[in-house]
Nucleic acid binder design. Structure first.
Lengths: 231, 231
DNA sequence: CGATAATCGAATATCGATAATAATGCAATC
DNA sequence: GATTGCATTATTATCGATATTCGATTATCG
């Protein structure tokens, strides 16, 4: 391990071709550039990225594993549909899993963990790129849960945050973060700092549901599609 | 849609090549024929199944998505390691998610649902093929939860049952199901039948933890490997 | 002798081309 | 006039061959 390796994983970290393609497609899907139901033809994608179909197929597999796309055997893959039902389902799981994670993590969090969390929150609010903001937002929550030292639980919550971007990003884009986005998140950190775990969990639940309601109102004020898969 | 379409997806449904290969490998991993840490070289697998590497790579991707294998970029994929920690993590999530699912599902379960559940239990106990037994065991639990009508929640629980097979099958193989396997599972159905939801949830938690302890004792009476990934 | 650089090898990753698949439209038949 | 069978065609799935990658081994140099 030499000094130069410290940059591994940083901005200089080269992505594999499938990861690169998957990331580009993911971004397009999450930001709504590609809509639910759209067909992702392997030849088209390969042409657009100037690669052969092999890495494209691999990239599509990742999107499918993420639940961002649906495979129709021999008939291609389409971008999965979003729905109010699915969104509610995600919020419900968050309310179930996150307090659980926090209860195991909070007792082990250190002062520098808190500082890191708060830094992330500010960075997230300032971020101009919506995907970067989403990523920092998740990293904030992750920083509160990771001391639980439960990889599987954390992975499940991570999946929920990944999925929720599909709904959250359009809402943020159309009406911003909300007046006291930073402050309300900060109260969670403060509650943990004060060893008031019950209060922290209450706040998480409350804010999850609140944010949920706001997004729901935002996205389904006008009626949209509600199918689960992209048939 | 004509009547004949009702058979689509039935026993006659042919698996795609990648699915077929993935299933074979899965079986080998779950039954312990292939051990944790073993390297899955795409050329070897391709030769063994007499196909080219393309479908093999796809099959390996599925195993990776399942958590049964780990990808080391440019260096191949290895069968993931099992560990007491991971096993505990799974049990904890089951205890968290399954009662939640049951609470939403139970009020909607019908008499014929119960009959179906009980049938599955008997079939599972009788099954000689360990993977079929595992599949019926999950299907039993699924039949109790599916009326919750929460696809995401159900998918997460399904993933846990898939993962737990890695631990459960060897334990079953070495010491059987346990004396009153059917009966103890039946008490859950009975409790639901009697509208005693709290009791049903208690039983689930209790049995999950009990079974967990038994498996743990079984598998780690002699010390084994405990790494998370197959490095 | 120790550290750095070139080489090699075993495996993955990618490519371009071909084969297989299933929906579609069209014609032939009852 | 509706149903069946059959080419058409758009697209995925698979193949065999080639390029690339990265660790290990060996060689070179201070």
């Amino acid at each position: 391990m030499t000094a130069i390796d410290a940059f591994a994983g940083g901005p200089g970290a080269k992505l594999s071709t499938p990861d690169w393609i998957a990331d580009q497609l993911r971004r397009a899907i999450l930001t709504g550039t590609i809509e639910g139901g759209a067909q992702l033809k392997q030849n088209d994608v390969a042409a657009r990225f100037d690669v052969s179909v092999a890495p494209v197929r691999e990239a599509l597999q990742r999107l499918i594993a993420d639940g961002l796309a649906v495979l129709h055997p021999n008939r291609g893959v389409t971008v999965s549909m979003i729905s109010a039902r699915d969104f509610r389902d995600i919020a419900e799981l968050r309310v179930l899993l996150e307090p659980h994670a926090l209860r195991h993590s909070a007792p082990r969090l250190t002062r520098s963990d808190f500082e890191y969390s708060e830094t992330l929150l500010v960075k997230a609010a300032k971020a101009s790129d919506p995907l970067q903001r989403a990523s920092l937002h998740w990293e904030f929550h992750r920083s509160l849960y990771y001391r639980a030292d439960r990889p599987r639980l954390l992975a499940q919550i991570a999946g929920l945050y990944q999925s929720i971007n599909r709904y959250l990003l359009p809402a943020w884009a159309s009406s911003g973060l909300g007046a006291n986005w930073i402050e309300s998140h900060l109260t969670i950190v403060t509650a943990i700092r004060n060893n008031d775990l019950d209060q922290a969990c209450r706040l998480i639940v409350e804010q999850t549901l609140e944010s949920s309601d706001r997004v729901r109102a935002q996205l389904w004020s006008a009626p949209g599609q509600t199918n689960e898969d992209g048939r």
